[in-house]
Design a protein around this nucleic acid. Structure first.
Length: 606
RNA sequence: GGCCCCAUAGCUCAACGGAUAGAGCAACUGCCUUCUAAGCAGUAGGUUACAGGUUCGAGUCCUGUUGGGGUCACCA
């Protein structure tokens, strides 16, 4: 990137010298030259021909000539139509290589103290995590890493949705049918146990509703079936009982609270195991049971300031029609707060805990509207954090048959999926038989790293905005454009490093400084490596792990060609041998860090 | 119905407004007595949903149409 800036500076001088025109550095962007053309960096001159008053070819030629004459870094240039392709001297690339190796933090932005909070995961405590949560967690964790690499002080949080009618449903089913079961006794993860009772509730409840509908229908055969169903859904004894339980919970009924604590504890220990397997973590956890009342103060504030209004039934609303949205309920007629009200309160709470410039919410795109409202309202309330709110909205993970539905049992469970992937990684690794020297514990760790690497990359390489399809029939690949491939490439660089250390090949810059020309595979690899700082910045500003994923893949490909085309230890020239070992080391360094930003482990051998 | 998102090779996905739209998978073909073949190289596969427009230049921006998804709950 340093080189790029130097070139841009030189280009402004070239515009001045050749055409007498001022062009600001910000207006000049260089792009890597496409493979099919000679050169390393390309300037598109079309935007400047109005200023230079020459043809695109002439403009490019004059700029190229100036650079070639005045810049020792520029070894040559060629012009194709309006494209000026610049070729850099070998010394520039060798300098880049030295810079990478001498700086273990290469590419990272020095800390500047600005703060960002990243909220992700945010599960309900009534069922285990599924594939959608995996996408969420991997995204959130990676975004947090990317922000840290961009110099931010990062606070990772999750908001646990631990109260509400859904929890009461599980509790009720357990109370009725549980017979004192525990996760330990049943040898089942707590979150799965509680989830099972949620399903049991749902089944029993459905049966009740059907029965009621039949009764209603018998009593009044002419009634609208839809209306009857609605009525039955409300009146079913199980639903009534769940509502009652929710009220008891809010009133602090000791028995209900005790059951609630016990079952939530089961869920948390289950979640913790899942988070550990996923390799994600949090700096602070917010529990909705502790924050859900906070929003009420804000309701009062909004009413006092005339931003909200009260309807005759006592409910409180905010009118957003002038912003192109609807009227939105803020407080129920019975005085209880709704989802968004809790989020107002929580937003204040978060800012009080950690005054941040940016606040990223990693939440599915079905809540786009919710976050639009949230941001709008806190902005109207004049909150300092309002402008920094960013909803990182991601699409659903769908099955070939459509959306996952817990009611239909088509949910892909996170624990199951990870376990399956580990098993496939184990089989595959043992078939290849390259890791005999690993202990059983190390081998098991490797299978896990490979499984999670494949899974994470699979979910992160896609643009978050888009819905994606997951086909359980076809297992996630370990070949081609995959996390495995990048891990494999890293392991290869590590193997080179081990042998180089054994043979005591020097790799300090002076050992390869005498190399005068670079092979294409060498300079192409170096060019990719030198892009790393720019990619970190891009991925950070776009909050896009996919940028880092495809970058890592490109580096791995460039190394694959390099590794295949050129021999390292059979190279007779010691300087060139050192260069290639150094290139391997630099590649390993960049890949390891890029993978780390994605939350993917980089094994030393596989 | 209003609003939001999406549509690119058989499949899964890429492509700061820039050159002949790229990868992987699947199919076919080569390459392991030499550093990790989970690799490398090649063949084949495209009217970028459709119609207009803006621009020196459009998969990308604008308008419309079609198709898919989401959302518009006193659920969270």
């Amino acid at each position: 990137m340093q080189t790029e800036n130097t070139l841009i500076q030189a280009l402004t001088a070239a515009f001045q010298a050749q055409f007498g025109v001022e062009v600001a550095p910000a207006e000049i962007t260089l792009q890597p030259t496409k493979k099919e053309f000679a050169g390393h960096y390309t300037l598109v001159v079309f935007p400047f021909v109005k200023l230079t008053k020459k043809s695109p070819e002439e403009t490019a030629r004059l700029l190229g000539e100036y650079l070639a004459q005045h810049m020792p870094e520029v070894a040559g240039f060629n012009v194709v139509k309006g494209f000026l392709n610049l070729e850099l001297a070998a010394q520039v690339w060798l300098g880049q290589l030295a810079a990478i190796l001498q700086n273990p933090q290469f590419g990272q932005v020095t800390p500047h103290g600005r703060r960002v909070m990243v909220e992700y995961s945010s599960p309900n405590t009534n069922k285990p995590l599924h594939l959608g949560h995996l996408r969420n967690n991997f995204l959130g964790f990676s975004v947090a890493n990317l922000m840290a690499a961009n110099g931010y002080q990062v606070m990772k949080t999750q908001v646990v949705n631990d109260r509400g009618i859904h929890i009461c449903k599980s509790m009720l089913a357990y109370q009725r049918f549980g017979q004192g079961e525990t996760p330990e006794a049943k040898d089942l993860k707590g979150d799965h146990l509680v989830g099972d009772y949620y399903v049991i509730f749902d089944k029993a409840y459905k049966k009740e509703v059907e029965q009621l509908v039949a009764e209603y229908q018998a009593a009044d055969p002419t009634a609208d079936p839809e209306k009857l169903k609605e009525k039955a859904a409300k009146n079913a004894p199980l639903m009534q009982a769940a509502q009652t339980m929710l009220r008891q919970w809010e009133e602090g009924d000791p028995e209900v609270l005790a059951l609630w604590r016990t079952m939530n504890q089961w869920v948390y220990s289950g979640f913790n195991a899942t988070y550990q397997a996923m390799g994600v973590n949090f700096d602070k956890v917010y529990y909705e049971s502790e924050t859900y009342l906070l929003g009420k103060k804000i309701v009062d504030e909004g009413l006092a300031r005339g931003l909200f209004f009260r309807k005759p039934d006592g409910s409180v609303w905010v009118d957003l029609t002038s912003d192109g949205l609807d009227q939105k309920l803020i407080l129920r007629a019975d005085g209880t707060s709704v989802y968004i009200t809790q989020d107002f309160g929580l937003a204040d709470e978060k800012y009080a805990d950690f005054p941040m410039e940016q606040s990223v919410y990693v939440v599915g795109n079905e809540q786009d509207y919710h976050f639009k409202v949230l941001k709008l309202v806190v902005n109207k309330l004049g909150r300092p954090y309002a402008a920094g709110i960013y909803h990182l909205s991601y699409g659903m993970v769908e099955l070939p048959t459509g959306r996952m539905k817990s009611r239909e049992g088509t949910v892909v469970d996170a624990d199951d999926l990870m376990a399956e992937m580990v098993e496939i990684a184990r089989q595959k690794t043992q078939e290849l038989g390259k890791i005999e020297e690993l202990t059983p514990v190390e081998a098991q760790q490797l299978y896990h790293q490979l499984a999670l690497g494949a899974l994470k990359y699979y979910l992160l390489r896609v643009d978050p905005k888009k819905n994606m399809t997951f086909n359980p029939e076809e297992s996630i690949d370990f070949q081609g454009d995959t996390g495995t491939y990048i891990q494999y490439t890293h392991a290869r660089t590590a193997a080179i490093g081990r042998r180089a250390a054994a043979e005591q090949v020097p790799t300090d810059p002076s050992s390869f400084g005498a190399v005068a020309t670079l092979a294409p595979a060498e300079s192409e690899l170096l060019q990719w490596l030198s892009q790393y700082p720019k990619k970190i910045q891009q991925a950070g500003s776009e909050l896009a792990p996919s940028v880092m994923a495809s970058y890592a893949y490109e580096v791995a490909r460039a190394y694959g060609r390099f590794f295949h085309d050129l021999s390292i230890f059979n190279e007779p020239d010691p300087a060139r041998r050192s260069l290639r070992v150094a290139l391997s080391a630099a590649t390993g360094q960049v890949l390891r860090q890029a993978l780390e930003l994605l939350g993917i482990a980089a094994p030393e051998r596989m």
